[in-house]
Amino acid sequence: MFPDRGRQVRVLGVDPGLTRCGLGVVDGGLGRSVTCVAVDVVRTPADAELATRLLRISDAVEHWLDVHRPEAVAVERVFSQHNVRTVMGTAQAGGVVALNAARRGLPVVFHTPSEVKAAVTGSGRADKAQVTGMVTRLLKLESQPKPADAADALALAICHLWREPMRERLAAAEEKAAQLARAHKAKLAAAAKDRARRAADDTNSGRNTRR
């Protein structure tokens, strides 16, 4: 996703939810430079059918993907809550977002709330007010994005822009190490096979000499 850090990279951050689904698009450039492109919250009525609510979220996400054309989508990972119904609704909304992105071949990455808080504020235990304040400051917004779902969506996009290059470098380093290990293992196997062949040749040579 980050082949050239000299150009802008656009990420759609999504704070999934049935009642309120936060959407935020952020451009990231060199270093930690970030710019807000758009932010909003999709709302669905609590008394509507589940399928209807999910369809409304899906339509909104599709519209944002068409209009803003992000290169990646960052979604908040569902974590354990006491309210199982809320967790299920959040997971269902997140699944709809991931499906829409996957249909377009866009990479989808799920970030935990603590990852997002740590990336934006420096503390994985920051509260919503601290996250909103830092998002407002980092993006140089004239006013704080409201409700908190909107700020969280922007925070997700910022988190992805800042963390993903590190993840990609780590993945590349791990793959290179794995390749080196495989190559070393293959050399050892080849050397062992060569030693066995030479030993067999020496044995056969000794037998022929005794004859």
Rank of each mutant, 00 (worst) to 15 (best):
Q92L: 13
D127E: 12
L23I: 09
K176E: 11
F2V: 06
V41S: 03
A172R: 12
D4K: 06
R137V: 09
A93I: 03
H184Y: 08
P165Y: 05
N83T: 00
T209E: 14
V34R: 08
T112Y: 03
P113E: 01
Q92M: 12
D127T: 13
D47G: 10
T86V: 01
K146F: 13
S143V: 14
I57F: 12
V78T: 05
G31M: 00
S123L: 07
A148Y: 10
P16M: 05
W64Q: 05
V26F: 01
A181Q: 14
T44G: 10
A199G: 04
R210P: 03
V67Y: 06
C21H: 02
H68D: 11
L65M: 10
N204V: 10
A148P: 04
R197I: 02
K176S: 11
F110R: 09
P45A: 11
S143A: 15
A148M: 13
D47R: 11
P165K: 06
T132V: 06
L12R: 02
W162G: 10
T209I: 11
R5I: 11
L54N: 12
S80G: 03
L139V: 10
E168T: 09
L138R: 04
V11I: 14
T136P: 08
E164I: 02
V37C: 04
P145T: 07
A102L: 14
P147W: 05
R182N: 11
G6S: 13
D15C: 14
H63E: 15
K140H: 15
V108C: 12
G89M: 00
E175T: 04
T86C: 00
N100I: 01
L54M: 13
I158A: 01
V135P: 04
H82V: 02
R7A: 09
A199R: 08
V42E: 07
E142A: 15
R137A: 15
D152F: 03
V131K: 01
A186P: 00
N83V: 00
A173F: 07
G124M: 00
V78Q: 00
L106Y: 09
A191N: 06
A91N: 05
D47W: 08
Q81D: 02
V120A: 08
V14P: 05
R182A: 15
E49R: 13
S205H: 13
T132P: 04
W162A: 07
V109G: 03
R125E: 11
